[in-house]
Structure formats: structure tokens, C-alpha cells
Write a protein that binds this DNA or RNA. Structure first.
Length: 879
RNA sequence: GGGAGCUUAGCUCAGUUGGUUUAGAGCGUCUGCCUUACAAGCAGAGGGUCGGGGGUUCGACUCCCUCAGCUCCCACCA
């Protein structure tokens, strides 16, 4: 087949992806083979592909394609996440454009819109993944909020409720006044924010609610909350405030009387040493309040506005109120001074609203037992983290895990299956029918309309933590009495998980918990943490910076294979990726190289009668061994998840060894034909190389694999086996390296001395050199003759290993310089030898070191001796 | 404040119980080549006292101490 002069990815990619789909090559069913399973980290259903996805899914795809070619039953389950907050806020925004508010249209109508939106925009990202070449089993596509998975979520909720691990409690939560929901601690980002420190005077009461002329000063950043104050707190050891003991003070503006209390929590040397305690609006204050039995006065509503309890500024937004109250305090003479102050402020990860600490009733899941098991799974090595350093982070978190607040004040998500009876009792059941049944046991007169279901939905992670289980058998989790279906039995536990370290607690840890709870088995064996994709200046990709390229544009411009290689090039596990388009260019160039090399080989005419030259024969033998050795190295890299090392090994094998050396050695001269033995070997090597490259660059390898020979329909490189590891001729490889180094030196000398590469020279050598490599040497270095012995007259000499080469070059050589170099080398070798011998004569070393290590030292010793010999010999010939 | 990690060539990174690595790769740079597969290419070259200082050792990028700088996580003094 004639190849076009240039590789055109866009022509090729759609064709092969369609072919793969058509033949169901991605589909997997349980069978007798060993399974290899990955579940996709489900992207947000309404998300669009960004560079992080590209990195993550490229890695996933490389692993799954590799496993497939290793003969495993490879299954990669795709799907999407309903992403409560993110999706709901998008729908809310859309409704706003339509002039609607969710509260106006009600829950049911809102969910209709939301589903509509999901149908319209949902799953775009999965289509985009196909462009990247992702070989997911699309027949198994799942969605965390599809009916079956929702059932699983509700069943597990009931399971934990019955177990007594789920409880309802009033807690200080992180309230997002924009999204109108509580968010978990992990979803709050603390940023240093400039604000002010307001010093306020609280006058001491005379006992009858009237101010005296004495006052104390507190410092606060939130003057708008003073109306919710329940006490003023000082440190019991603070001498300055002795006189305040047992006194009461008056809240400015509203003149409510509050006590002065003492608590160790207050730092004496911070601020004025007096702390206003506002239990409703600060976590620590809440805790102080509990200790001192203080009333909780909540003056801020869900939207972040002051309510009636505030008495003043009612209805104003908290920030507006802050501005206004400062003016009032100024007027009333309670404002002593204002300082500039920078303090960390919590922001909502989703909406970027300032988080309001708020007391509310929420559902919690007890973590202690779950966390202990999940910690053990990693500590015991049943789950491996790559890189290992994340184990520390993980341990630290697991040992301090707080109970998980699982309720969210949203509508898009799984609604909590708790039902309130008119008498205040709660029943928790998977369906309204079952709930009614349970309720009637309490009160037989109840009917369906008497039950009020909890308004909240569950945290999204409460469904995605089941992902590795529920994608296979949604009927199983939460029902220990059932038997898992064949899919779950066969595919669980999955093998590898590739994800970002940012969700190690959100998702990874919780999947491990769910796995332990419902399967009594870890959900995966290895977790490969990618880094965060940044731009080349090290900044995070962001819309506002405009530094985030659209992956689809890149695929369009360079081809999916190029994008994949570009992402992988610089991605060692756990390190952030500094994205640079030049890496993708490198990928494109590699495609071009592969393409052109096949254009060369496929263009050769083969002569059945021609005899194989010595040079070609050795070249074939050499590359065969090199290929085998590289395959072993690549396997080793994959087994340690060193994907970029595996990639680089293959890249260099193809480019430097196959193209630059092997093909140059066997390439027939212009107008001549290649002998059939060499041709066959060359084509065979090429095919093996394609197979090695395929997991990384699926499209171009399929295209060329199909092009290089007649293939039957239904055949694909995807299911070819990884080339096998075999016996490597190490001596040949070493000798060849010697030749290569010598040739490079000769080329260097030629370039330096400006001798035309076309001018044939005689090269002399002294020392041991495998004679079978002479033909290679002669061809590669364009040497007229290759002779043992000493060059007569002036020559440039250089050592390669223990062999001394000389290139005769009248008038160009500086013998003193050469001598100096050789003497330095000799000195170093002597020193080194002494070191090795010292170690060998060290009894402790010989007694304790493994045999192989001692053998290595002995080899080093003899190598050094040989080297010293030849150096001395070389030096003596110079005089 | 607590913890973890990082610092090696212009850039991005390897460096595997301390020794043939008197430090390697890819990209970039420079020089010479439009040589009939490929200029998105070929052939060469240059470039690092391995963050600073100290120590252990025959020998340190590797181990220990110390200082400096960077990153991340956790916790948040109102």
C-alpha cells in the first residue's frame, strides 16, 4: 500500500475508532481469562474535557491497552458523576437567565429542568474522550444518579442507619449562602483575605442594664455579629482583666447584657485579650458556648442576611451590615479604632462565596470504624500508592477523620430516605412504600401523605464512593444477604486507579471504606496519583487566565496520538505537569518519524536471490537482541508505573536505534534491492515496535499495522500480544555499543577537523574487538579499512572501553594533551581500584553483603585492572 | 502552628541498599548539511563545583546535622 508523504491523523483517527467500536473490541464479558479492570474517575456529567482529563484518561488508556495486549480480559468502565453542587448551580444559572428562581418553581419542576439539562449537555465529555482514543467499554456506561445506582445509594444509607452509624445532629457546618447548602470541610478553601480589625468598646453594666463609664475593648473582624454575642471571654490567668470577674457588659447599640466569662481558649497576647463569644456564628465560640452553657442566638439567615433576632439592620446582607454597623458604632462612640488586618477566610470551592459558619441539623456518618479499616488497607500494603509519599498524607487524615456530613441542602441528587412522622419520629427506608409500612408499625392510622420526606439530598461522594462496586452490581451494596452477580464477582476488585491527589480524601479514601464495608475487600490494588496540569509558568490552568488550551483543538491540530505522547512525556507520578505545546509537537514529530520509516521500508524492492551482507546480518542480530532487552526494560517500567520511562525507552529504541542505526545499516544503496532475509527481519522488527508503541499511540500504530500486510476484517493491533521477552546476547550488545561509541568519536573528529564524511579513512585499533563487528564499523563510520595495529605518523587516538582507536591525521594531533587525559584517567582508575579493594577486604562487607553484590565488586575490580593495563599500554606507546 | 515533599544542564525531569555514572535523558541552544524515508529531518558540539555550609567514609548526588528557598496537605488567634 502506497503511503501519503505526510501522516494525516484526522483522516486516520475517526476511521479506526469507528472500526474498533463496530467490532466491539472494547467490550468485555467475564470469561476464564484473568481480568484487568479500571473504573473511570467519573467526570462531572455536564463537564467538558480539560487537560487534567486528558492526562488522567491517557494514563488509564495506556494501562488498559497494555493489559489487553498482555492477554488479559481488559475492562474499562466509563461513566459520569451527577455532581450535585456543580450541576445544580449550572441549572440555577440557566433558570436565572429564563427569569426563574428555583424556590418559585418548586422541587419537582426544578428536577425536570435539571434532567432536561443533563440529557442535553450530559455525556458530552464521554464523546470527547473517544477523540482521545479512550478504549472504554461503552456498553457499560454508568451514571451515578441513574435509577439502579440511586437504589444502591439509598440501600447503603439504610444499611448504615440500621447499623447506628448514621445520625442526625446539630452541628456547626460550613454554610454556602450562595448555593444555600452546607459543604464539607474539604470543600472550603482558606485564603488570606484583607479585612479590618475593629476595636469595640463594651461598657460594663451597673447591674441594672445601664452602662457605667467603665468599658473593655474587644477586637473583631465581624462587627455585624455583635448582636449575637453571648458573652465576653478572657483568659483566667490574665491579670489585666481581674476586675472584670463576675461583671456583666452591654452589647453596643442594642444594650443587651452579657456576662464576662473565663476560658483557656483565649490567648492573652492576641488582640486585646478579650474575646466576644458568638456561639451561632463561629465554630470555636460555639464550643466555648457549650462549655459555659451559653445561649445560641442565630442572627443570620440562609442567604447571609441579618434576621429579626439581630434587632437592627434586619434584612441586610452580612457585608452590607458590616459597613453600616461600623458607622453606627462610630456614631455611638463604641468604635475605638480600626486596623488593617489580613486573616484566612473560608471560601466555598464551588461558588467562591464566603463561608458562613452556621448551626444546622445535618446527617452524619460515623467515621471511626470505617477510617480504621481503610487506614489498615493502605498501611498493610493491600493497596499501594504511587508515589508512596501519599501514604503519609493519607494516614494523617485517616487518624483524624471527623464524622462525615452527608446531607446537602440541594435538590439535584439522591434525596435522603428519611421520613418524619407527625409525632416527630423518623423512619428510614429505601422507598416511600416501605417507609409507610414501617410508620404504621408505630401508628397504624397513618397514610402516605402524613409522612414528610427529608428535604436534603446526599453528598455526591456518598454515591461515588460505591462506584467500583455499583457499576458492576448496583443491587449488591447495602444488601449483605444477597450474592454478588457474576460481573461483580469477576471484575472486583479492580486493578488500578488513576486519579489526582486532590481527591484522595473525597473519593479514594471513601471508596476504600465502602469496599471494606460492602465487599470486605479493597476496591483496587494500586492508586496512581497524577499531578496537576499547570502551564509552563507553573500556574494552574484556569479560565480567567486563559492559559488552558482546549484539548479538542490540540487533537485537531496535532492528532490524538501526539497529544497523548505530549502529556505522557513529562508525567512522572505525583509530580505536577508543566504543560507546554512543544511536547505535543514532539509527539507529532514522532508520528512523522514512524510514518516515514515505514515509507522507507515499504518502498524497498526485495531480491530473492541477493545474498545478505555481513553488515546486515550483524545488524539484524544486534537489533533483535536490543529489542528483547528493551522489551524487558519496558515491562519493568510498566510494572512500577513509570509510564514516562517506558515511553522514553520505546521512543529511543525506535528513533535512535531502529531508525538512526539499524535502518541506516541495512538500507540498500540507491537503485539496489534488499535481500529477503534482511527485509523479513526489518518488517518483523517494525511490527514488534508498533505493538510496543500501541498502548501509547493507538491510532498511527493501527493504521500502519493494517497497512503493512493484508489483514482480515476483525483483526486489530489492539489484540496482538505484547512481544515476548527472550534470550538477550549481552556480549553482542556491549560490543555493538563499543562500535557505536567509536563511530561517534570518529564522526566527531571528522566534523572537528573538517574532513568530509565521504572521504574514506583507514582506522587502526589496539585491544580486543569482536571481529564480527568489523563490517558494521566499516559501514557506519565509512571506513575504508579497519586494521589492527598502530597508526603510522600523526593520529588522533581515543579510548573506547579498553580499546584504543587511532584516526590517522597528519598535523592535527596534540600528543601532550592526549597524554594528560590518559594520565588523569589512569589516576582515577587507580583510586577507584583501591576503593574497591578496600571494600573487598572489609570482612563485614564480605560477610554481610549478598553474593551478587560481592560478585559485582569483584567484576569491578577486574574491569578496573584491565582498564589500567590498557591505559598504561596506551601511555607507553606515546613516548 | 503541625506534617510531608522538593532544590541536579537554559527548561522539564531520571539517578534503584554510598563505588566504571570523575553525573544522565528529552526538549531547547550552537555548528555543518535541502544526502533520493523524514528540515516536523540528518551529523556533530557546547552546557552542571548535583541549593549553601559542615560531618561520617578510602570514596557522597546518594547517609547525618545545619542554614536558605519553593510546593503541597492539615489546623485556623477572635
Amino acid at each position: 500500500m502506497e503511503l501519503s508523504a505526510k501522516y494525516n491523523p484526522s483522516e486516520v483517527e475517526d476511521k479506526w475508532y469507528a472500526y474498533w467500536l463496530e467490532n466491539k473490541f472494547f467490550h468485555s464479558e467475564p470469561d476464564e481469562r484473568e481480568p484487568y479492570t479500571i473504573v473511570i474517575p467519573p467526570p462531572n456529567v455536564t463537564g467538558i474535557l480539560h487537560m487534567g482529563h486528558v492526562l488522567n484518561n491517557t494514563l488509564n488508556d495506556v494501562l488498559i491497552r497494555k493489559a489487553r495486549m498482555d492477554g488479559k480480559n481488559a475492562c474499562w468502565v466509563p461513566g459520569t458523576d451527577h455532581a450535585s453542587i456543580a450541576t445544580e448551580s449550572k441549572v440555577v444559572a440557566k433558570l436565572k437567565d429564563m427569569g426563574l428562581r428555583k424556590e418559585e418553581i418548586g422541587r419537582e419542576k426544578f428536577l425536570e429542568y435539571a434532567w432536561e439539562w443533563k440529557e442535553e449537555h450530559g455525556g458530552i465529555i464521554l464523546q470527547q474522550l473517544r477523540k482521545l482514543g479512550a478504549s472504554c467499554d461503552w456498553d457499560r456506561t454508568r451514571f451515578t444518579m441513574e435509577p439502579a445506582l440511586t437504589e444502591a445509594v439509598l440501600a447503603t444509607f439504610c444499611h448504615f442507619y440500621r447499623k447506628g452509624w448514621i445520625y442526625r445532629g446539630v452541628r456547626m457546618v460550613n454554610w454556602d449562602p450562595e448555593a444555600l447548602t452546607a459543604v464539607s470541610d474539604d470543600e472550603v478553601i482558606h485564603r488570606d483575605t484583607k479585612s479590618h480589625f475593629y476595636h469595640l468598646r463594651y461598657y460594663i453594666s451597673d447591674g441594672n442594664g445601664n452602662p457605667t463609664d467603665k468599658y473593655l475593648v474587644i477586637a473583631t473582624t465581624r462587627p455585624e455579629t455583635i448582636m449575637a454575642d453571648a458573652a465576653i471571654c478572657v483568659n483566667p490567668n490574665d491579670e489585666r482583666h481581674r476586675s472584670l470577674r463576675g461583671k456583666k457588659v452591654l452589647i453596643p447599640l442594642i444594650n443587651r447584657e452579657i456576662p464576662v466569662i473565663e476560658d483557656d481558649y483565649v490567648e492573652m497576647d492576641f488582640g486585646t485579650g478579650c474575646l466576644k463569644v458568638t456561639p451561632a456564628h463561629d465554630v470555636h465560640d460555639y464550643e466555648i458556648g457549650l462549655r459555659h452553657n451559653l445561649p445560641v442566638i442565630d442572627i443570620i439567615d440562609d442567604h447571609g442576611r441579618l434576621n429579626e433576632k439581630a434587632q437592627i439592620l434586619v434584612g441586610q446582607d452580612r457585608f452590607e451590615a458590616r459597613k453600616n454597623i461600623v458607622a453606627l458604632l462610630q456614631e455611638s462612640g463604641n468604635l475605638e479604632k480600626v486596623e488593617e488586618y489580613t486573616s484566612p477566610v473560608g471560601y466555598s470551592e464551588r461558588t467562591n462565596a464566603v463561608i458562613e459558619p452556621k448551626l444546622s441539623a445535618q446527617w452524619f456518618l460515623k467515621m471511626s470504624d470505617l477510617a480504621a479499616d481503610a487506614l489498615d488497607a493502605v498501611e498493610s500494603g493491600r493497596i499501594k500508592f504511587i508515589p508512596d509519599k501519599y501514604r503519609n498524607t493519607y494516614r494523617h487524615w485517616m487518624e483524624n477523620a471527623h464524622d462525615w456530613c452527608i446531607s446537602r441542602q440541594l435538590w439535584w441528587g439522591q434525596r435522603i430516605p428519611a421520613y418524619y412522622l407527625p409525632g416527630g419520629q423518623i423512619v428510614v427506608e429505601e422507598t416511600p412504600e416501605k417507609a409507610l409500612e414501617a410508620a404504621r408499625k408505630i401508628d397504624s392510622t397513618l397514610c402516605a401523605s402524613d409522612l414528610k420526606q427529608d428535604e436534603d439530598v446526599l453528598d455526591t461522594w456518598f454515591s461515588s464512593w460505591l462506584w467500583p462496586i455499583s457499576v458492576f452490581d448496583p443491587q449488591f451494596p447495602g444488601h449483605p444477604e444477597r450474592t454478588p452477580n457474576p460481573d461483580l464477582t469477576y471484575y472486583y476488585p479492580t486493578n488500578d486507579l488513576v486519579t489526582g491527589p486532590d481527591i484522595i480524601f473525597f473519593w479514594v479514601a471513601r471508596m476504600i471504606m465502602a469496599g471494606g464495608e460492602f465487599m470486605a475487600e479493597v476496591p483496587f490494588r494500586n492508586v496512581y496519583f497524577t499531578g496537576i496540569v499547570r502551564d509552563k509558568l507553573g500556574r494552574k490552568m484556569s479560565k480567567t487566565l486563559g492559559n488552558s488550551p482546549n484539548p479538542l483543538d490540540l487533537i485537531e491540530k496535532y492528532g490524538a496520538d501526539a497529544v497523548r505522547l505530549g502529556m505522557l512525556l513529562c508525567s512522572s507520578a505525583g509530580n505536577d505537569i508543566l504543560y507546554d505545546e512543544s511536547q505535543i509537537e514532539q509527539g507529532r514529530n514522532f508520528c512523522g518519524k514512524i510514518w516515514n520509516s515505514w515509507r522507507l521500508v515499504s518502498g524497498w524492492t526485495v531480491s530473492p536471490t541477493a545474498k545478505q551482507s555481513d553488515c546486515s546480518r550483524i545488524a539484524v542480530k544486534w537489533f533483535d537482541s536490543l529489542l528483547l532487552r528493551t522489551i524487558a526494560a519496558v515491562e519493568d517500567h510498566y510494572s512500577k508505573f513509570r509510564i514516562s520511562d517506558a515511553l522514553m525507552a520505546v521512543y529511543k529504541l525506535f528513533w535512535d536505534d531502529y531508525c538512526s542505526w539499524y535502518l541506516e545499516l541495512v538500507k540498500p544503496a540507491f537503485g539496489e534491492a534488499v535481500d529477503s532475509a534482511t527485509y523479513k527481519a526489518t518488517v518483523d522488527f517494525f511490527e514488534k515496535l508498533l505493538k510496543l508503541i500501541h498502548p501509547i499511540m493507538p491510532f498511527i500504530t493501527e493504521e500502519l499495522w493494517q497497512a503493512m500486510s493484508e489483514r482480515k476484517t476483525g483483526e486489530t493491533i489492539m489484540y496482538q500480544r505484547t512481544p515476548e521477552i527472550g534470550q538477550v546476547d549481552g556480549t553482542l550488545l556491549d560490543n555493538f555499543d563499543l562500535v557505536r561509541e567509536a563511530v561517534n568519536s570518529i564522526r566527531g573528529i571528522r566534523a572537528q577537523k573538517q574532513i568530509s564524511p565521504k572521504l574514506s579513512l583507514d582506522i587502526f585499533y589496539e585491544g580486543k574487538l569482536a571481529p564480527e563487528l568489523f563490517p558494521v564499523m566499516e559501514k557506519a563510520a565509512n571506513v575504508g579499512a579497519f586494521r589492527e595495529g598502530n597508526a603510522e605518523g600523526a593520529a588522533v587516538s581515543f579510548l573506547v572501553g579498553t580499546v584504543k582507536f587511532s584516526v590517522p591525521l597528519a598535523g592535527f594531533i596534540n600528543e601532550d594533551e592526549e597524554k594528560l587525559k590518559l594520565s588523569e584517567e589512569l589516576e582515577h582508575q587507580m583510586k577507584f581500584l583501591a576503593g574497591v579493594r578496600a571494600k573487598l577486604s572489609n570482612e563485614k562487607f564480605v560477610a554481610h553483603a549478598p553474593e551478587a553484590v560481592v560478585a559485582l565488586e569483584k567484576k569491578k575490580e577486574s574491569d578496573a585492572l584491565a582498564r589500567i593495563e590498557s591505559l598504561r599500554a596506551a601511555l607507553s606507546t606515546m613516548n
